[in-house]
Design a binder for these strands. Structure first.
Lengths: 142, 142
DNA sequence: AAACGCATGATAACGATTATCAAAATCAGA
DNA sequence: TCTGATTTTGATAATCGTTATCATGCGTTT
């Protein structure tokens, strides 16, 4: 039903897949590449499961993020947003348009150099988070 | 009294330096390299000006950030923190220790390459924000 | 069936920030 | 210097995303 990686992660963490959690997972899978807020996930999940509550959505997103099924981040101190986490976007580089707010992603391995440098300094780097605030090509034209 | 750059920025923006604003500025100048929350700024500013209120602190920090006297950022969705902004830390690269929470800074120009790449793609990059989540050398030993 | 544990949904509580508003301070012009 | 307009301030109410609480329900194991 779901990808093997997902079901494995769930099993490894003794994590029952209830219908509420499945609804949230469906929403996230159907919206890969999007950055959804909890409220947006609730709205979409209600189409599959009308009685699901906001508390369950928060709890589920939180736990999915904890086992790396989702990536949780915040842009510009607004509210948390969640995106489905596959290996391709493990390095989360985002470009946030200051005009239209659209969020696009950059793939890059440039930061590995910096991480190696920091590890030589004695740090143990766990994750990093890089955001560019910019005007996207469309808004720049205006 | 204050650095020429600061007074110029204030003047250029028609920004009166009241005693409340001076108190906030003093706190930020006395704590360069620190990342203070509004509440912490209030606490410190009260030593100079006991009647200053939290609303004024928020307003002042906000306006100082708007004219680039301060840099405003948020670590891990907690609360805003402010630091005095001089040319040296214009590129804000922070390392947040996942254990002790200590925040240190990295100077680096590596990201210029990435910015140039994005600008070739049609973006107009205004700012960027890079954070590393890591264990600092001291906490790594434990 | 009984007892347990976990999940759920409603909603209260929280905490950081922002908005409101009357009072005080400051400024500009006569 | 008076006077009226503008800005700033401090107290506090309001907002809003998120978390905590708690009674209820559901599944599993005795």
């Amino acid at each position: 039903m779901y990808d093997k990686i997902i079901t494995t992660k769930l099993k490894d963490n003794n994590y029952k897949l209830t219908e509420q959690r499945a609804a949230v997972l469906d929403v996230m899978l159907a919206n890969q590449g999007q950055h959804l807020s909890a409220e947006e996930v609730l709205y979409l999940a209600k189409k599959e499961l009308p009685n699901i509550g906001i508390a369950t959505v928060y709890r589920t997103l939180e736990r999915f993020a904890a086992i790396n099924i989702l990536y949780k981040t915040m842009f510009a101190g607004d509210k948390y947003r969640y995106e489905f986490c596959n290996d391709r976007n493990h390095q989360h580089h985002h470009i946030i348009c200051l005009d239209c707010g659209k969020i696009t992603e950059v793939e890059d391995v440039l930061l590995n150099n910096l991480e190696h440098y920091l590890e030589n300094q004695g740090y143990q780097v766990v994750d990093h988070d890089l955001k560019f605030y910019a005007y996207c090509p469309e808004c720049k034209k205006k």
